[in-house]
Every structure is written in C-alpha cells, then in structure tokens.
C-alpha cells in the first residue's frame, strides 16, 4: 500500500505536472543565484571564492521555499489524505513518505547543481567538499521544516508567503551550522547540522500528521 504512494509522491514532486514546477524550478533558481552573484559583486575571484559557499547555502534555503505551496495543499483539496485515512494509512505514514519524496526531489539535485555553481563562483575543492557535506547533512532538515510548515499552513490565506517567512526563521540553525562548517572546517559543526536535521526529520511526520488532522476539524 505504501509503495504506490512513494511512486506517486516522487512523480508529483519531480515532474510537477500542472501543479507547476516540479524539481526543475528550485534547481534553476539555485543555479540562477549562482550565475547572478558574480554579476552583482563583480569578477573578483578571491571575493567570490570567499563568499560563494555562503551564497550557495542561502540559495539552497531560498530554493527550499519554492515547492512548499504544492507540497500538501493540493492533496488536501483533492481529498487524498481522507481517502488514505479510510484505508487505514495514518497521516504520519503519509507525511513520512512525503518527506522522503520531497527530500529526494530537491536535496540530491541541489548537491549536483553545486558542481557547476562552484565553477561559477571559483570555489576550491575543499570548499566544495564542505559545501556538499553540509548540504547532505542539512537538506533533510530543510525538507522536514518545509513539510511541517506546508502542512501547518495548508488552507490558510496567504499561506505561501507565511511559509517562506517561517522556513527562513526555522531553518536558521541548519544554515548557521551548515554554512559555518565552510569557515571552521570542523567535523563537529557538520555534526550539529546533521543532528538538527535528524531531530527535524524524526518529529516532522508526527507534527505534519497532527496538522493534517487538525485541518480536517477546522
């Protein structure tokens, strides 16, 4: 019963369809920032190399906002969660599946996009390595925060704008430790980022599931 749901979520989040975007939109957004940044600060290679990693972290955080409005709300409107509940699939399971699919649809792609982005920003190999490790540790947390917010704000007016603001605030610890690793090159910093991610991944199915249930009563 779960495998069809995984396939459906992946198809929806990777290709989007009429819901718009799919995985390409955050990816292009991420690359667009990497391309625009050198134009904005000028072709100063040492400056780009020094600040580029941090810019890519902010780009990843902003890119994570883009899929939020189609992460939960369209399926609430479709009645999908109600139908699954009638079949005994709990909201927690549905949200755990969605978290997995959501991360797969943007985390690994952003990491791949780091290679051309690193070339554009003149990042050295060590910075790129730390950036990739940081994103590997941090993007599951970003996906989890995003899903939690999408479930909480589904059905709210101006939910999309609120989602962005909430994500920026709640993802701050991931950004601090993830991007902080670029400067300090300390495994503990990456470890903190991973620990925060792990905690968020663990609580998100329950928090998002409770939000879906509460939404029904509203």
């Amino acid at each position: 019963m779960i495998w069809p749901l995984v396939k459906r979520d992946l198809r929806m989040l990777l290709f989007g369809g009429r819901r718009g975007g799919g995985a390409m939109l955050p990816l292009l957004f991420f690359l667009a920032i990497a391309m625009l940044y050198p134009f904005a600060v000028g072709p100063n290679a040492p400056l780009l190399a020094k600040t580029g990693g941090g810019v890519l972290w902010i780009a990843a955080l902003l890119a994570a906002i883009l899929p939020l409005d189609r992460l939960v709300l369209p399926d609430v409107e479709l009645g999908l969660f109600d139908q699954l509940k009638l079949r005994g699939v709990t909201e927690e399971v549905v949200m755990a599946v969605r978290l997995f699919a959501h991360w797969l649809s943007f985390g690994p792609l952003l990491m791949l996009a780091c290679f051309p982005a690193a070339a554009l920003l003149n990042l050295d190999g060590e910075t790129l390595r730390l950036l990739l490790l940081g994103l590997l540790a941090g993007t599951p947390g970003l996906a989890a925060v995003g899903l939690m917010i999408a479930a909480l704000t589904a059905g709210l007016r101006a939910g999309a704008a609120l989602s962005g603001l909430l994500l920026i605030s709640l993802a701050l610890p991931i950004l601090i430790f993830g991007a902080g690793a670029l400067e300090r090159s300390d495994p503990a910093t990456l470890g903190f980022s991973a620990a925060i991610s792990l905690l968020l991944v663990a609580i998100t199915p329950f928090a998002a599931g409770a939000a879906i249930r509460a939404g029904r009563e509203g």
Partner: peptide
C-alpha cells in the same frame, strides 16, 4: 473530491 490526480 474525487481524489484522482487531475494531471493523470
């Protein structure tokens, strides 16, 4: 709500 994906 038919719970059938509109795009499919």
């Amino acid at each position: 709500r038919p719970a059938l994906d509109p795009d499919q």
